[in-house]
Design a protein around this nucleic acid. Structure first.
Lengths: 344, 344
DNA sequence: TTGAAAGCGTTACCAC
DNA sequence: GTGGTAACGCTTTCAA
């Protein structure tokens, strides 16, 4: 592979001049020189060596994406959007699956450091862990996806931006939709692990019930997923929780699932119990994974504006790499309800 | 961040000595020196700069993974297994989504070159395209996943390894399972684009019918998917093709779908038409995506040994990077049938 | 057993 | 406007 020196020689100029072209400093260059250089690049099929650029500048044109598991459709969708957004800036995405293992998270961050990656999007992990702070101290820029940041003082002490769907609004929309369609006995079904996004969703959900004068007691049905949050496990949980929903008497007429994977499991569990959806019970999910459109009945769901969110995260990351002093912010995105057949 | 010189200084040795430790050449080193160096690394929290190593050695500890879309569950599953396999060798995975755009594929390969990545796993793309050959000529090691390689002379001229499920066997197993369960009027439903893996599956399918003395005429039902092979499109196609299946008279009692996404669509389409699965028609898919376990009825499917395949691909890639002269091979993996509720 | 120094491909500063 | 050259952090050969 040709290098910058070959190009310089071939064009009869110095290395610095070629470098100037490469770095957009060709404005006050003689037109003829520029052309000769560009010509040489073409002829030699020259592509700058990113590794050398990195070594010199300390900047890799890569961002890291840390997710629990790419097999989970929500994170696959996120990965796609992040990839797309990164491409607009000529960045590539380094993927890290952590399976919720602390050791994997730590190793990923360290690897990113040594690979010269300066920015990482961290999806759905608890950023209070010390290695996040320590990576930040070493200059790693991180941005949190999906509101796993603790609130209050601790949050303010954290040097991380946070981007998420407005989970309060999501919970509210889901509940309100059921109320609008005539449901009056509505429950919220969820995995038991407490997170900020979870409590926000529940908050919005209860708010909607309260605003409509519906009872707010014993509305939360929860269960513990078996293993790390694979999608399959989440759906299995949903299937199991269908039983708990039907233990309630009288049967609820509307259910909000904390995410679509769980909602889909719920659909299966209800069908197993010969309950008709939406005939007997209406179900709304939160997430809008591709699958929700495919199954029967299609799962009505509250959808985050993922593409916009990914773009903002990438943009923000790149800005912050240049200007680390910018104060961290929490950015919320308003979701939209996608209506399908699981609600009457 | 501390560098190798800091460590050397701190330990009172030369840079080369530290480098020797880093590269496992510490066997004939004085124990005491080694300890001092290791101590210094700890104290300074030293991590070697991969970028500098790369620049020097031309080897990035990264492999590329080129997939049409990570949102497709089959590729997400592949990505997970590849990530796991790569981790065993301390490699990271650079993800490229191409959405079946030639331009994206070309750009990805070029980027990998300039990032110093020496090995790429190429999933389900036609490797006859000239840029693959050109990347290979520049020293990029590539391995093809899922048998999209052309056969015969052209194949032999290609410097690529190929790893795939034994698609003939997969088609055979699917058909044989239906036959074993008593189906006698069996069809194969597929997307229309011709590929090697497709024709192998069909080949195995027909072979099984022939061996059991069943009719082999007009057994292939096909349709064109709308856009790039998103999973959604594939399922939509399956849903549409349910109609074509039911146009056959008498109705088939068994269907093999070329992949699970299509099979799931088929299930939905059949239900829409008030056909019972498996009561009236049995369905088998090929792929075994996580979703197949979740839906109702669960889709019986032929499963490739993905983890093994990913491990072999990564191992082979790394071997070949060291020893590019090794003759390319085609490696086939025997699939297993996973029985669920979609077959009577 | 350890050290000195060249060089990987690029950038950026300072001369001319 | 263009060129010379010292880094960036590491590996590796050669010498001591």
């Amino acid at each position: 592979m040709a290098n910058i020196r070959d190009v310089a020689r071939h064009a009869g100029v110095s290395v610095s001049t070629v470098s100037n072209v490469l770095n957009g400093r060709a404005n006050q260059m003689r037109q003829e020189t520029l052309e000769r250089i560009e010509q040489a690049m073409k002829e030699l099929n020259y592509h700058p060596n990113r590794v050398a650029q990195q070594l010199k500048t300390g900047q890799a044109k890569m961002i890291g994406l840390l997710v629990p598991s790419i097999v989970n459709p929500s994170f696959a969708a996120l990965a796609r959007e992040v990839d797309l957004a990164a491409k607009k800036h000529q960045y590539r995405v380094l993927l890290g699956n952590t399976y919720r293992q602390e050791e994997e998270e730590r190793a990923f961050l360290e690897d990113m450091m040594s690979h010269g990656v300066r920015g990482v999007i961290v999806a759905a992990s608890n950023m209070e862990k010390p290695y996040f702070a320590s990576a930040a101290a070493q200059g790693m820029i991180m941005i949190n996806y999906d509101s796993r940041m603790p609130g209050g003082d601790v949050y303010n002490a954290m040097p991380f931006d946070s981007v998420s769907m407005d989970n309060v609004e999501a919970g509210r929309q889901a509940a309100q939709h059921l109320i609008d369609r005539g449901c009056r006995n509505i429950v919220f079904v969820t995995e038991a692990t407490p997170t900020v996004s979870r409590s926000h969703k529940i908050g919005g959900f209860l708010e909607a019930l309260r605003d409509s004068g519906l009872p707010c007691e014993h509305r939360i049905i929860e269960g513990k997923a078996l293993s790390a949050y694979g999608d399959t496990e989440m759906s299995e949980l949903g299937r199991a929780l269908a039983g708990k929903v039907l233990d309630i008497s009288p049967h609820p007429d509307g259910v909000v699932a904390i995410n679509d994977a769980l909602g889909i499991g719920l659909l299966v569990g209800l069908r197993d119990a010969n309950i008709s959806v939406p005939g007997d019970i209406s179900v709304v999910g939160i997430d809008n994974i591709p699958l929700s459109e495919l199954i029967n009945p299609g799962l009505t769901s509250v959808m985050p504006p993922l593409a916009k969110m990914a773009e903002l995260m990438v943009d923000r990351l790149l800005v912050r790499i240049e200007e680390p002093a910018i104060a961290p912010e929490e950015m919320l995105f308003v979701p939209t309800l996608v209506s399908r057949q699981s609600v009457r």
